[in-house]
């Protein structure tokens, strides 16, 4: 039986690990304090880049999107009401802008949501896979999810957000987040090699 409390993670979003909290920095950004903006940019850059890299499969667009998001943060900082964590608020802006960018790509007949041919056509290998093979398989499986499903998986497993916070970021009801995760799990189960072949990575 698996009933023990989950272990503490080392990847949850940090809010007050530094002397100045994200919220204090954002208030100063709202007053057009450039030093505060540089500090906030430096603090959120890695998390924001990882999030957007998972959503937008065009590497050349990720850096540009990070800058667009932070420009919006500079402009909208005075509107921050403090109803959510700063990181949640920024990722919400990032999600909305990524969706807009992806829709723009789709209208130019680039379909980043399309399942890669090697995922669509081939079943996952029914044999033990190496670490590298498994990582490639995971990335391909994630790429096979819709951007909405990929966002929920990324925010849950990579960024350690609760479903309530994810609902705030992607601006939908919490039950929709649960439903998206349900379908994403089913798809991942289908697209990934069977779990008994993961031993090498875990070992």
């Amino acid at each position: 039986m698996e009933s023990e409390a989950p272990a503490q993670r080392d990847w949850p979003p940090t809010e007050k690990n530094d002397a100045v909290s994200d919220a204090e920095l954002l208030i100063r950004v709202g007053e057009h304090d450039r030093d505060a903006f540089v500090a906030l940019y430096t603090r959120v850059y890695g998390r924001l880049h990882r999030f957007l890299a998972k959503l937008v499969r065009h590497d050349d667009q990720v850096e540009e999107l990070v800058n667009d998001v932070m420009m919006t943060v500079w402009q909208k900082a005075p509107d921050f009401q403090g109803h959510s964590r700063v990181a949640t608020w920024i990722l919400g802006i990032a999600y909305k802008m990524a969706l807009k960018r992806l829709r723009g790509n789709a209208s130019r007949r680039e379909d980043p949501w399309a399942l890669p041919p090697d995922v669509a056509d081939n079943a996952p290998p029914d044999k033990a896979v190496s670490d590298t093979e498994l990582r490639i398989a995971v990335n391909r499986a994630l790429a096979g999810l819709s951007v909405e499903h990929r966002a929920v998986v990324t925010l849950t497993f990579f960024h350690g957000y609760s479903y309530g916070e994810i609902a705030t970021i992607v601006q939908c009801p919490p039950n929709t987040v649960k439903t998206r995760m349900f379908h994403a799990r089913e798809q991942l189960r289908r697209l990934l090699p069977r779990a008994e072949h993961w031993d090498r990575l875990e070992g």
């Binding site: 940019y41 890695g46 880049h49 990582r135 995971v138 990579f158 990934l192 779990a195 993961w198 875990e202």
Partner: peptide
């Protein structure tokens, strides 16, 4: 509990800030 670490192993590494700032 097996899927979580497998997914996280495929996460992007933190990248160094480029000229974006």
């Amino acid at each position: 509990r097996r899927l979580g670490p497998v997914l996280r192993a495929a996460d992007e590494p933190d990248v160094a800030m480029q000229t974006g700032l």
